[in-house]
C-alpha cells in the first residue's frame, strides 16, 4: 500500500443503483467500489493503470429520498442510424418522447460524504515509461487542484461529486456517530468484469464503525 491515495468525495444526492432494482431505481446504502473507481477514473486514468479500491469510509448518516421523473424508455437503434446514414438524411431519425415515456421513481441517497482509499496496479498495457509513482503524482496533482477529465458523479451524472484530496499527513475524517457498530449491508456489487462478458461480481459488505473493507476483486470473498 505504498501507493495509496485517499480522496474525500461528497454531494447533495447520490444514486448507486442496485442491479436488481434498476427500473424504479433504488440506491445501495453506500457507494459501491465500482462507482468509487469511476470517480477516480474521472480524475485520472490511463489504460496502463487499474484502480483498486481498498476501503470506503462512510462519513454521514444514511438517508433516502424519492424522486419520480419522466424518462425515455427506448434506446437509439444502430440499425436506424445506419439506414439514415445511407439515406444521407436525418428526418425520420428522431425519438418522440410522448410515445416512449416511462415515469420512473428513484430512491436516492441524500447528503453523502465518503473517503475512498485506493491504490492502482499497472496493467499489461503499461509501457516502460509508466511507473506507479508517475501516475500517483499525476493523480495527486490533479485532485489537489480540482482538475478532472470530466466532473465525477455519485452514481448518475445528475448528481455531481465534489472532491478533495486528503494529504498523506492529514488525519482521517471521522464517521458520524450514527454509523458506529457493525452493520451488514448484504451482498453488494463489487465491480464488473469487463474482460469476461461484463460479469458482475458481488461481495458481502460489512460496515464497521463506518468503514467498509473492500476485498480484492479476485479474492475468495467475491462471487461472480
Amino acid at each position: 500500500m505504498a501507493y495509496g491515495i485517499r480522496l474525500l468525495v461528497w454531494g447533495e444526492r447520490a444514486c448507486f443503483t442496485r442491479p436488481e432494482m434498476k427500473v424504479e431505481r433504488v440506491s445501495y446504502d453506500v457507494i459501491t467500489p465500482s462507482a468509487a473507481r469511476g470517480i477516480l477514473e474521472a480524475i485520472h486514468w490511463k489504460p496502463a493503470i487499474r484502480w483498486v479500491v481498498d476501503r470506503i469510509r462512510v462519513l454521514k448518516p444514511i438517508r433516502f429520498e424519492s424522486i419520480r421523473r419522466n424518462e425515455v424508455g427506448g434506446k437509439l437503434s444502430a440499425a436506424s442510424v445506419t439506414k439514415a446514414m445511407k439515406a444521407g438524411r436525418t428526418d425520420g431519425l428522431v425519438s418522440l418522447i410522448e410515445d416512449d415515456r416511462q415515469q420512473r421513481a428513484a430512491t436516492v441517497l441524500r447528503d453523502v460524504a465518503y473517503v475512498i482509499e485506493a491504490h492502482f496496479e499497472l496493467t499489461p498495457r503499461a509501457e516502460a515509461c509508466d511507473s506507479e509513482g508517475k501516475h500517483l503524482d499525476i493523480f495527486n496533482r490533479r485532485a489537489r487542484k480540482g482538475q478532472c477529465f470530466h466532473a465525477p458523479c455519485l452514481g448518475v451524472r445528475e448528481f455531481p461529486a465534489c472532491f478533495e484530496l486528503i494529504e498523506e499527513d492529514s488525519s482521517q475524517p471521522e464517521p458520524h456517530a450514527d454509523l458506529l457498530g457493525e452493520r451488514d449491508l448484504g451482498w453488494m456489487l463489487h465491480d464488473i468484469d469487463f474482460a469476461n462478458q461484463m460479469t458482475p461480481h458481488f461481495f458481502r459488505a460489512f460496515m464497521r464503525d463506518g468503514v467498509i473493507d473492500v476485498p480484492p476483486f479476485t479474492g475468495v470473498e467475491v462471487k461472480a
Binding site: R142, K145, G146, Q147, C148, F149, A151, P160, C162, F163, E164
Partner: peptide
C-alpha cells in the same frame, strides 16, 4: 486548461 484549474465546488 482542458482539465481545469480549480475545484468546481470552490
Amino acid at each position: 486548461c482542458a482539465m481545469g484549474n480549480a475545484p468546481a465546488h470552490k
